[in-house]
């Protein structure tokens, strides 16, 4: 991820999918999708001090709440970019949520088994396009990633 395109320090790796409404990244591995917060999203939130994640077996629709993100200046939901069932949560990230700030793309939050991957993957934005579209969002938010 070291060579990922960046804008104002915010990296957007090209090999991932992105939901530009919910500000999460998706990495598809076979029948499983790893999901985490994007670099601009963690910068917007500030240092994350608490992360409450839905448990294994939770069924979530696209747009449903996967986790609640809490920082000193932000409180908000992490919404699911795909419909599916939570098959794993990242215990390391839950017990040390600032890992999301330090390395957002290594710090997946939830692992999901999608119900309708073929139908919903087209709703996500591929890396190259996402890195272009994020420039405007980063400017609007007035953030600098690092």
């Amino acid at each position: 991820m070291g060579n990922a395109p960046s804008y104002k320090g915010c990296k957007i790796p090209e090999d991932l999918y992105y939901d530009l409404e919910y500000h999460v990244w998706v990495k598809v591995d076979g029948e499983i999708a790893f999901i985490g917060a994007t670099d601009p999203a963690q910068a917007y939130a500030g240092e994350i001090i608490y992360l409450k994640v839905k448990g294994r077996g939770t069924k979530v629709p696209r747009g449903g709440i996967l986790a609640t993100v809490e920082s000193a200046k932000y409180m908000g939901p992490m919404r699911s970019p795909l419909s599916g069932v939570v098959v794993e949560t990242n215990g390391e990230v839950v017990s040390n949520p600032s890992l999301v700030n330090r390395d957002p793309y290594a710090s997946w939050v939830v692992c999901l088994k999608p119900d309708n991957l073929d139908g919903e993957i087209g709703l996500l934005t591929k890396g190259k396009e996402a890195s272009e579209r994020y420039k405007k969002i980063i400017d609007e938010w007035g953030i600098q990633c690092r």
């Binding site: 709440i65 609640t68 809490e70 409180m75 908000g76």
Partner: peptide
């Protein structure tokens, strides 16, 4: 406001 934002963020 902060706690209400949390409750809403939790669904």
């Amino acid at each position: 406001f902060y706690y209400a934002a949390a409750a809403a963020a939790m669904g």
